[in-house]
Design a protein around this nucleic acid. Structure first.
Lengths: 331, 331
DNA sequence: CGCGTTTACGTCGTTCGTAACGATA
DNA sequence: TATCGTTACGAACGACGTAAACGCG
């Protein structure tokens, strides 16, 4: 058993059991991986994968267990290299972030630009990931940190640092009846309109859905999209009223009206999630502080060490606090 | 960085920074380790050890961190091999146990004999370890399980399974005044006598000491020894009254009188402690069940998974329950 | 016939042990 | 001078890549 064999094993598992693809990803040749996999299986004395003909068809039960352990080994090996890189003030490196479209499009650019200015040698990889898969990618070690939102409690896997709070807003075409009035819209009024929101609002545990159901209403979701830009496009086209994150409404949306909806829906928290026991590169800490200024090196170190005292929770800002005045109308 | 390099690194750290000794322990040559260590340091770009002349003098701060990570890596590599060995019903193996003298001498022999009968290919290594170091050796991966006693709460490091309860007994030479009476001895009476007990009873947090101090008495410890046999020897010699674990009093101590002391001292619990996230060989589970029959495969699996429901706690036996009638007089 | 895996083979790099050297107490 | 670590060297092993063969859809 060697570190290379374990690395190949993980690459194969993460490439959908396609050895050729995995070989490319680890910058090696396909016969090399094939042979090393065989040798590992020989040494362990059982199959890690189920073969169908010559191809790999599935992961063995024992294979799953081994892969789980191998991930820990590779993560710790990376940690050791991070310790070394930090110690020698190595400025190059990469930062892999798994997050959702809204974060990547509206919340992250400022922080990434700042990081790029202060650490030009760091290449940032934004990995677009479906909501449900973000934490899995983090746990699998495919990314260095995850940025994800939730209503209420922090994600249970990994270590979650609260970055900021945000609210939903109601978006209509400019001049829509809803926007002109003195009184903010109610849930009942919204339920009568065709709504456009994120894909995740179709899930029964969606906080949007739950807000309606709590008062016995069923929203009429005319359309969903994974992407705030798409939602805005279809709102412009008159397909319905958009409900989306306040970060997604910007100055260049002059042809849209945005109404606050914090009286209707519970606030959301955006979390930075880190792997437990991971050693962070210096630039990762810098990025975290750019993104969430209340999370300085000291606070992150304390939270990573498992300190549950909520000192960091006290200063979590609302999204507004850190950016140019929003276009959201105050009713 | 290779697994071998990390193994050598740990061996050196665990051999008191003596490379020659470490080389012997990993069955390799001294120049080999020396070179691999240098290569690892070159790759990481910093010194893992502080040199004094040619010798290793201390571990670097960064070295400590790397060693910590390397231990995790090696432990997980061992776990993978354990998965494999279990899967192929490998009957050979070794079981390394760190424990105190009393356990090794009086509590473990039956379980080890039973294990040897059912798994003759398993070689058991009893590692005599000072009380305070038992858990450190477990965490360092030098042993597979630790067996340790405490009054009250479970050890915090690792996963502690309660094996049995026990009490202290008062041991006197046969015919001693204390033993002949109708009433059991009081703390006040004991405090007036020269006592012989374990080394650990000198520590201020010792539960023996605390029992006396709770009622404002200071015991007169005439002598301590690490070893119940030594204590009994000096009790026989008339040097004083022994206070020791009930397991240490056996049928062949006919020339000693033993009085129960559970009305004076709080009960103790003996724990089996396992590393978190360790994969146990089948024979380790067998051993645990021999030693503590209420800890079957299912219970251990549940506790290892982090289940905090105290189902296993309900059936923890007292030492008496599992052995031939004790010689301890019931007052 | 294309895609993906395995087999075969030659080269290169690396590790390891032996032996000699060096430093330190 | 004994102990421990480093350097030097040669042999052997093992990994890797290229090229060709094999199976499968």
């Amino acid at each position: 058993m060697t570190l290379a064999q374990l690395r190949y094993l993980i690459a194969i598992a993460d490439s959908g059991l396609n050895i050729t693809l995995a070989a490319g990803r680890v910058h090696a040749t396909q016969p090399g991986l094939s042979k090393q996999l065989r040798q590992l299986e020989d040494e362990l004395g059982f199959q890690l994968f189920v073969r169908k003909g010559k191809s790999l068809d599935a992961i063995t039960h024992a294979g799953e267990q081994v892969i789980e352990r191998a991930r820990v080994i590779l993560a710790e090996a990376t940690n050791i290299r991070s310790i070394a890189a930090n110690l020698r003030n190595e400025s190059r490196g990469e930062l892999r972030i798994a997050t959702t479209h809204t974060q990547a499009r509206f919340a992250l650019p400022a922080a990434i630009a700042a990081l790029n200015a202060s650490h030009p040698q760091v290449s940032v990889h934004l990995e677009p990931t479906r909501d449900a898969d973000v934490l899995a990618r983090l746990e699998a070690g495919q990314v260095d940190l995850a940025i994800i939102s939730s209503t209420g409690a922090a994600p249970t896997s990994g270590i979650a640092l609260p970055a900021y709070y945000w609210q939903r807003v109601i978006v209509t075409p400019s001049g829509h009846a809803l926007a002109g009035r003195a009184r903010p819209p109610s849930l009942t009024e919204l339920a009568a309109l065709p709504l456009i929101s994120y894909d995740s609002s179709l899930r029964p545990e969606s906080s949007l859905r739950q807000a309606f159901e709590a008062v016995g209403l069923t929203p009429q979701i005319a359309m969903t999209a994974g992407d705030a830009d798409l939602i805005k496009t279809y709102v412009r086209a008159g397909m319905g009223v958009g409900i989306l994150a306040e970060m997604a409404v910007r100055d260049d949306d002059a042809d849209l009206d945005a109404l606050p909806a914090d009286h209707l829906f519970a606030p959301c928290t955006t979390w930075i999630v880190l792997r437990r026991d991971s050693v962070l590169r210096e630039y990762t800490l810098a990025f975290i502080e750019f993104f969430a200024p209340h999370l300085g090196r000291r606070e992150v170190a304390r939270l990573m060490a498992g300190d549950q005292t909520n000192a960091a929770w006290a200063n979590v800002p609302h999204w507004h606090g850190r950016h140019a005045p929003s276009r959201i109308q105050v009713a």
